[in-house]
């Protein structure tokens, strides 16, 4: 066992209908900054990693602005909930549930994600 997973060659994987889908090396994900992944069916996922190393994945498309840019937003925590703020018009999305914190009628899809 090692306490520094960054130094191992762990991969980030997303749970899709077809099974676990490998995206990239864990080391590509800077804490607090996202990356976008292209899924086999053409959808896009935004992946994030927080300071404690926890991983999150939500749909990459900003439902308000329409562009696929959520992976480029700033992350943070609001009342204990991890979120990303869209770089377009700044709406925040809960990284665990996909619900928009500024307009709860809107939510984006979430994915199960792991490092393996």
């Amino acid at each position: 066992m090692t306490l520094a997973p960054e130094t191992t060659d762990l991969k980030i994987e997303l749970q899709l209908e077809s099974g676990w889908f490998t995206v990239c090396e864990l080391a590509r994900l800077l804490p607090g900054r996202g990356v976008a992944a292209l899924l086999p069916d053409g959808r896009q996922a935004a992946l994030f990693r927080d300071r404690s190393g926890k991983l999150y994945a939500i749909d990459n498309r900003d439902p308000f602005g329409g562009a696929a840019v959520l992976s480029r937003g700033l992350t943070g925590t609001h009342q204990g909930r991890p979120f990303v703020a869209s770089p377009l018009l700044k709406q925040r999305f809960d990284l665990e549930t996909g619900v928009c914190l500024d307009d709860e009628s809107v939510r984006v899809a979430t994915y199960e994600v792991r490092a393996a």
Binding site: G32, D50, R51, G73, L74, T75, G76, T77, H78, P82, A85, K90, R92
Partner: peptide, 9 residues
């Protein structure tokens, strides 16, 4: 100890 937010970062 948390992740901050989009305002202070």
């Amino acid at each position: 100890g948390g992740d901050g937010c989009e305002i202070c970062k």
